[in-house]
Write a protein that binds this DNA or RNA. Structure first.
Lengths: 329, 329
DNA sequence: CTGAAAGCGCTAACAG
DNA sequence: CTGTTAGCGCTTTCAG
């Protein structure tokens, strides 16, 4: 890997001039040509590590997500990437597994790597954000909020939960259960509260406490919970799941039991990935995953550019998906 | 962020000693204690940028994949990450969109960022690997091969295509079509050849040339191709798709046409992500995505550690998935 | 075992 | 407009 010194020598100029050429500063056209030629023959590319050490910041941002295998988060990542790309930033993706320790470790790496900023979908209980925030590095939270006074992009989870539930009642179901995520995850709590609100208003009173199931946020969690629901003495006739993967699990169990929708009502907060179900049959409350990513990245870019306004919270709307949607996942 | 100088001052030792403590070199127990205490109170973490500039290499590896929203690649990524983690490496994920220009750009970044190595699922036509290979940085190809003499981890694609096709004939189907990916992508070509071999042997001669459809590698490609197949004067009674997403597209069209499996035979080379279909109904040739990742990462770790044996090609077996499989996706 | 000092490649004053 | 120079924070000889 050639250095600016070698390029400078070949072009007959000083290293500083080479640096200027590559940073868009004013240099006489003649020397620009000389430098570019020299750089080309030497296949020179500026060493980003050295540049970063000097500048104390890079064109790299970190994106920490809990589960890279969940299409919701990959769509979000895609949005982040596209927006970051536009501003010349590259994205480092880190999988936290919803593990606060891993989250903290990656946060530390992001700092000591001198990354320009981080977008964080926080784990259930926060890792140690304190340090990175104190240091003044830009951080944007996405999907879940943190205890810190930082920018955040959220979804109106309660409304989403309510919308899913309402759709089921409107379709004529009366005994609407809920498969919620683990306790302590904000987005899940909110979606579950949306469900409860609507049930309180519209149910005919036959719903049992067992109609609320807590499960892990994955396919197998959905399976377990759905099986438990079906085993009840008086089972529900419909179910709301508070995320996409649990919805898949529920549908699998239903299919195996021979009571696939629309015989049994299913509404999902989130998008059913790669589904063969029509939105007419399984209600999906579309979460703007990609848009969340784009928005978060935009906010981060602002901060990196030096924006110092007070922390903003942006809340995006979820909406019932229809066949007309060509959007995402 | 504290520096080793501040730690050294507080501990009453030289910066060199601080460095030694953090790199496991021999230092008297007494000073080790002093340094650790000082570091703790200052919340010191070594600056990776500076360290890298000095060492010319980091504990970061790049993983370049064509599509982060394809579960095959995220499972692969997961494998890479888990294995890299074990050796203390972090993984930077880059999305190439199957675009050689983007691939080349990320390759350059990987180099100038001083990353320890890269794992590459090459785009259709190779980006510029020449430079990075010439420079001697470790590169491992995965899923698709390159024109270069480097380590590679592949799947036995021809056998996979043949297995999918055979399963369909064994189930009694006789007019087995194939939805293949774009021309020029090796994995697809091979899987399609596997299909052709079996068809030549077992078909009753009624198959038309139109039974082979080339489509883009995504859900909509599968949809278009399946629709074309169904529109034929004498349509097939079964179809093999050469990747997972096209399989989803085909199933969607079939469902909409009211001829879902098992009425119409479907076999997929790859795993149907988040499916509600039983493997008894839709044949899936399981691709060891995660295992590919683990293997590639292992090979890369070897190279980074200084292994200089000649380039190895590892071929992993695909196999028909059954209900018993709890594995992956 | 420990300290002093050189330098990894680059950029940003500061002169000229 | 351009060259000289001083570090960014760390590791690593080289002496002691």
């Amino acid at each position: 890997m050639a250095t600016i010194y070698e390029v400078a020598a070949l072009a007959g100029v000083s290293p500083a001039t080479v640096s200027r050429v590559f940073n868009g500063h004013t240099v006489s056209p003649e020397k620009v040509r000389l430098v570019r030629e020299a750089a080309a023959t030497l296949k020179f590319a500026p060493n980003r590590t050295a540049r970063r050490l000097r500048n104390q910041s890079s064109e790299l941002i970190a994106l920490l997500i809990p589960d890279i295998e969940n299409p919701f988060f990959t769509a979000l990542a895609r949005g982040v990437e596209d927006r970051a790309q536009e501003s010349g930033f590259s994205v480092v993706l880190c999988n936290t597994d919803d593990d606060p320790a891993k989250e903290t470790r990656y946060l530390e790496i992001a700092m000591s790597e001198g990354m320009a900023g981080v977008i964080l979908a926080p784990a259930a209980s926060d890792g140690d954000l304190a340090q990175i925030v104190a240091q003044g590095r830009p951080v944007v939270a996405v999907d879940r909020s943190t205890g810190f006074d930082i920018d955040a992009v959220m979804v109106d989870n309660r409304a989403a939960g309510a919308a899913a539930t309402t759709a089921l009642f409107d379709a004529g179901f009366r005994r609407v259960a809920c498969i919620a995520g683990p306790l302590g995850i904000e987005s899940t709590e909110e979606r579950y509260l949306g469900w409860r609100q609507v049930v309180a208003k519209r149910s005919d009173g036959t719903d049992a406490p067992e109609f609320l199931q807590h499960a892990n946020y994955r396919v197998d969690g959905g399976r377990t919970a759905m099986a438990a629901l079906l085993a009840l003495e008086t089972p529900p006739d419909a179910v709301v799941t508070t995320n996409n993967l649990m919805g898949v699990g529920a549908l699998q169990v239903l299919a195996e039991a021979g009571i696939a929708p629309p015989a049994f009502g299913v509404a999902i907060v989130g998008d059913l990935p790669f589904t063969t179900f029509s939105p007419d049959v399984v209600t999906q409350v579309h979460l703007p995953a990609r848009h969340l990513g784009v928005t978060a990245a935009s906010m981060l870019m602002d901060r990196i550019a030096g924006d110092t306004q007070p922390a903003r919270i942006v809340v995006l709307r979820a909406r019932i998906a229809s066949d007309a949607d060509a959007d995402s996942v």
